[in-house]
Deep mutational scan, measured.
Amino acid sequence: MVIEDPKTNKLIEVEKLPDGTYKVTIYDKKTGEKKTITMSKKDLEKLLKAL
């Protein structure tokens, strides 16, 4: 799943891993910076609600 946040000009890509956690990659379209973090479903839901 890919989500675009027009306010921050970032793309957020979410991928479910076999162990039940989620790999979240955040791309900054302005700088080209890429950050990848792994989080639980509960933390991911908090992140998505904040957008």
Rank of each mutant, 00 (worst) to 15 (best):
L51W: 01
K35G: 07
K46S: 14
K29Q: 07
M39F: 04
T31Q: 12
T25C: 11
L17I: 13
M39E: 01
P6T: 11
K10R: 12
T25P: 00
E13G: 08
M1L: 10
D43R: 03
K46L: 14
L11P: 06
G32S: 04
K23H: 11
I3E: 10
P6A: 04
N9F: 05
K35H: 14
L51F: 08
K35I: 13
T38G: 11
T21K: 03
V2Y: 00
M39I: 07
K42A: 13
K23M: 10
L51H: 13
I12N: 02
K41I: 10
E13M: 09
E13W: 13
K23Q: 14
T25R: 08
P6C: 13
L17K: 03
D19W: 07
T38A: 07
I37P: 00
D43C: 10
K10P: 05
K10W: 10
T25A: 11
I37Y: 07
L17E: 03
K34R: 08
T8Q: 11
E45N: 06
M1W: 02
N9A: 09
G32W: 09
M39Y: 03
D43E: 12
E13T: 07
K23E: 13
E15G: 11
L44P: 00
E45D: 07
K10F: 10
M1E: 13
G20R: 04
L48R: 01
A50C: 15
K34M: 12
Y27Q: 09
L44Q: 01
D5W: 02
P18M: 07
T31A: 05
E45M: 04
T21E: 10
V14D: 00
V14K: 01
L44I: 08
G32F: 07
L17H: 10
K35V: 14
K16Y: 08
K16W: 06
L44V: 15
L48E: 03
E15I: 09
S40N: 03
K7I: 11
E33A: 09
E4I: 02
M1S: 06
T38E: 09
S40C: 13
E33F: 08
T31G: 07
D5Y: 02
P6D: 06
K7F: 12
K29T: 15
T21A: 10
K46V: 12
I3A: 03
T38Q: 13
V24Q: 00
M1K: 00
K49S: 14
A50S: 13
T25H: 06
E15M: 03
I12A: 04
K42H: 14
L51Q: 13
D43P: 01
D28W: 01
K7E: 15
K42Y: 15
L11N: 09
D5M: 02
T8H: 10
V24R: 00
D5T: 01
M1F: 03
V14F: 11
E4G: 00
K10Q: 13
K23W: 13
I26E: 15
K42N: 10
K30C: 12
Y27L: 03
L17D: 04
E4S: 02
P18G: 07
D28A: 01
D28L: 01
D28E: 06
V14H: 06
L44G: 03
Y27P: 02
